[in-house]
């Protein structure tokens, strides 16, 4: 074959990749930790800086780790649903308050309610980076053994919960 055709062939093979790429949703983000133990962290509590929130706090039951911040509109959007999850006792939610100011975060919880068992205060986004967070809000489902089962980027709602989270919780509980 004419070797001068090779670049053309390469590009013709390459372009469908880009077309397919356009059809996939970049918001469906994976986490490098899916199927692996949750990253180790140690954060001061948001409400009470003297306590620490650590990876060990998550163990023993299915938990939801939610990365949130007051500057993030998506977090405001999902807040009501988180409140509903907490009030129904569906799952304990651990918050990581990310790149935020403590005073604002506290007044946000006061005004909108506090769905979290406890929130860790991650001022310089160290822990956010460890979890591989792209932006807020992001939610991670962690099983009783501390393994990350699923990650969702974007505001949570009932439909997403039923479609993505519930089957995984049931599957993990099945022997």
């Amino acid at each position: 074959m004419n070797r001068f055709l090779l670049p053309l062939v390469a590009v013709v093979v390459f372009i469908p990749i880009l077309i397919l790429g356009l059809n996939t949703d970049p918001r469906k983000l994976p986490s490098p930790y899916i199927g692996k133990p949750a990253p180790q962290f140690e954060l001061p509590g948001l409400k009470d800086p003297s306590i620490t929130v650590t990876t060990a706090s998550l163990e023993g039951r299915m938990t939801l780790v939610n990365i949130w911040a007051t500057w993030c509109v998506g977090c405001r959007a999902e807040h009501q649903y988180l409140m509903q999850l907490a009030q129904q006792g569906t799952i304990p939610i651990y918050g990581i308050n990310w790149r935020d100011s403590r005073t604002q975060a506290l007044s946000w919880l006061e005004q909108l309610g506090d769905p979290y068992v406890v929130s860790g205060f991650d001022a310089d986004a160290r822990v956010g980076i460890d979890w591989g967070a792209y932006g807020a809000p992001e939610s991670f489902l962690v099983n009783p053994q501390g393994i990350v089962l699923y990650r969702f980027a974007g505001p949570l709602n009932q439909a997403i919960w039923e479609r993505e989270f519930q089957p995984r919780i049931l599957e993990d509980a099945a022997p």
Partner: peptide, 9 residues
């Protein structure tokens, strides 16, 4: 290089 993070209290 010095950067401020957040208010810790």
């Amino acid at each position: 290089f010095v950067a401020l993070g957040d208010r810790i209290g």
